[in-house]
């Protein structure tokens, strides 16, 4: 039985962050991209909670609460915008967002 220590959490967090970033870069659906962005924020949350536990201070936990709140606000606004765009365009494919050019 290997004890779970800080580096384990950091590796998982880095993996989540990379998965999120890869999703943002590769996927073309605005909703999936948005989901990947939330994954990146939660990677930060995981690392913060782990650091907080191993640093023995509560600052990290407090910041996690702020990040969760801000992420919720961002989701509320973001989904509303994506839904409004879908109503106009009948598509949320980001490759089709080309109405503005030089």
């Amino acid at each position: 039985m290997i004890p779970v220590v800080l580096p384990h959490y950091l590796v998982v967090s880095a993996a989540l962050f990379s998965l999120g970033l890869a999703g943002v870069i590769i996927r073309r659906n605005a909703l999936v991209i948005f989901m990947s962005l939330e994954l990146m924020l939660n990677a930060a949350n995981l690392a913060l909670a782990a650091f907080s536990r191993y640093n023995g201070s509560l600052h990290g936990h407090v910041l996690v609460f702020f990040i969760i709140t801000v992420a919720a606000a961002e989701v509320a606004v973001g989904l509303a915008i994506i839904v409004a765009l879908f109503r106009r365009r009948k598509s949320v494919n980001v490759d089709e967002l080309t109405s503005m050019r030089l």
Binding site: S13, F17, G20, V24, A30, I33, F34, L37, M40, L41, A43, A44, A47, L48, F51, S52, N55, H59, G60, L63, I67, V70, E74, V77, G78, I81, I82, A84, L85, R88, R89, V94, L97, S99, M100
Partner: peptide, 28 residues
């Protein structure tokens, strides 16, 4: 306007994610 909103949203949230991840390491 909506297109601008979606672009700002995605890139803005991406930059927030980098910012938060950076703060995490500084805190750590």
């Amino acid at each position: 306007s909506l297109e601008a909103g979606v672009k700002y949203l995605i890139l803005g949230a991406l930059s927030s994610a980098f910012l938060v991840y950076g703060i995490t390491f500084i805190y750590g």
